[in-house]
Lab assay of single mutants.
Amino acid sequence: HNLTITQGKLFFHYNPKLCLSEIHKMEEVSGTKGRQERNDIALKTNGDQASCENELLKFSYIRTSFDKILLRWEPYWPPDFRDLLGFMLFYKEAPYQNVTEFDGQDACGSNSWTVVDIDPPLRSNDPKSQNHPGWLMRGLKPWTQYAIFVKTLVTFSDERRTYGAKSDIIYVQTDATNPSVPLDPISVSNSSSQIILKWKPPSDPNGNITHYLVFWERQAEDSELFELDYCLKGLKLPSRTWSPPFESEDSQKHNQSEYEDSAGECCSCPKTDSQILKELEESSFRKTFEDYLHNVVFVPRKTSSGTGAEDPRPSRKRRSLGDVGNVTVAVPTVAAFPNTSSTSVPTSPEEHRPFEKVVNKESLVISGLRHFTGYRIELQACNQDTPEERCSVAAYVSARTMPEAKADDIVGPVTHEIFENNVVHLMWQEPKEPNGLIVLYEVSYRRYGDEELHLCVSRKHFALERGCRLRGLSPGNYSVRIRATSLAGNGSWTEPTYFYVTDYLDVPSNIA
């Protein structure tokens, strides 16, 4: 807008934040220059609390790290170098490059900038070799853009010569660093050979998330399962459950009422301010606690030095998902009996873990797994792929695949051998790939016309006998059925096997 004052003059007093240069501009645009008398524009009460600059400061050096910015700028000295009290560095987070010096300023003089007072450097006698002032900004957020400017702080001049310097606002972004852990990993099994893994992005990506790394490792069953005799009275049979499938998407929606109208769909109840505040506090606490764990609990591995020492970490090797089922080394339970199943799973520490690289999504279907087997899954978020990966501390989750139908069934015939004193040795093959492992066998036998009897055969007993022995049988026709019990439950009964026990007292003698 054009402003013209045809008559009258300007009068400025007691404006401590208004620089004289701005008042002189007002004289020019209003056409009143030359009308004012000496005392109409006070030299001592206008701009006496402001830094009124008329020179431009330029930054000469900028260096960044993930949490620091090192700045240096060209030296500046007023005509009387004693008038320079120091520099004021202003900075704040700036997602967009549209910041002005006066953003967030209120009537009390406060604003949204963080201000650092910096002492002037030592003055050199040689004007050509003056030290460049600077400042190291610490405690910054990774991968965050900051708006920065600097200006001088000078003393009051009796001659009211307006001098000083100020830089333009520059924008500097800190470097990326390792992201925080992925949030809320959930693993479920939808079949006997697959596990579905879902997660949420890290709360602090500290860069642009480029991919996720998912490692999985087959877990050995508890050692007590191999040692305890679950045929003993009072000892509860062990059981394991597989990871249940995901709930429906509708039930997972946030901010939804727990109660549904019987007449149909209901609208979600909005969260109160107290609920939102509580969630923010919980989120802040979780982030602080995660940072504490990362800094205190997890110790970084030592990389190899120039002395030739090897990095103890196993090298990563990509495998196809079809090879995942046989990740671990199978060892027989008892070496003397080769027909026992290889369900003991000690994992070799030198073995390469299978892994998958996930790009542009937060889910993965891990296939080719062994049925009813526990897996430990390790999830890392990465925001750099080359020249070397920059990934987060791992988040861990466990899951067990679903049982395989008929995996616990005894394959092959049940054979028998009759000894003296009416002892019958029953023999059968253990299931080759049971659900988890076989903890015991149930032997059901009966003599024709009598009630059915049951015998429990422990895992250890089966390994020693290759089956079991029935003792003290009365003469007669017998039928026997056997079924295995694994961590997933009972298998199917075998087809009945028949044998006849004679009275050993009636056996004919070869003595003449």
Rank of each mutant, 00 (worst) to 15 (best):
D385E: 12
Q219M: 07
R471N: 10
N339Q: 11
T485I: 11
Y498Q: 07
D311V: 00
K287R: 06
S203A: 14
R240F: 14
N477Q: 03
E388I: 05
P349L: 07
P338S: 08
Q275Y: 07
R313F: 12
K432Y: 10
V393M: 08
E404S: 06
E227R: 08
V324T: 04
G374W: 04
C231T: 05
G489D: 03
C391H: 03
F289G: 04
P413I: 00
K236G: 11
N206D: 02
R318T: 09
E265A: 14
C456W: 01
Q252T: 12
V345H: 05
S315N: 12
R400W: 09
E442S: 06
V297W: 11
P205L: 13
L453A: 03
S479R: 13
P312T: 10
E310H: 11
S283F: 14
P245E: 07
P508I: 05
S492W: 00
Y478L: 00
L440T: 03
S398F: 03
E433W: 13
P245M: 02
T303L: 05
R376W: 12
S257V: 06
F289T: 06
Y396D: 01
A407K: 04
Y396Q: 05
L369V: 08
P387G: 08
W242L: 10
D409L: 13
T307Q: 07
S342Q: 15
D385K: 14
V297C: 04
A381L: 01
E282W: 15
P354Y: 15
N421T: 09
E430H: 13
F499T: 02
G436Y: 03
S344Y: 08
G472L: 10
V334L: 13
L235R: 09
P354Q: 13
V359W: 02
S363I: 09
H371P: 08
D204A: 15
S492V: 06
Q429T: 04
V327C: 14
K357L: 09
P354F: 08
F215D: 10
Y500R: 11
E404N: 08
A407W: 11
V443W: 00
E249A: 11
E227W: 10
Y478W: 11
R459S: 10
P244F: 08
R218M: 14
E465Y: 13
P244D: 11
E430V: 11
E217Y: 15
T373P: 00
V334N: 11
G234S: 10
T494P: 01
E224G: 14
K406P: 07
T502C: 08
F246Q: 12
A405D: 08
P338G: 10
G264A: 15
S268E: 10
S243N: 11
S342F: 12
I438K: 01
C391N: 01
G467P: 01
Q219S: 05
E362Q: 13
S342I: 03
F215E: 05
S304P: 11
R316S: 14
Q275P: 07
T210V: 13
L464N: 11
W216E: 03
S320G: 12
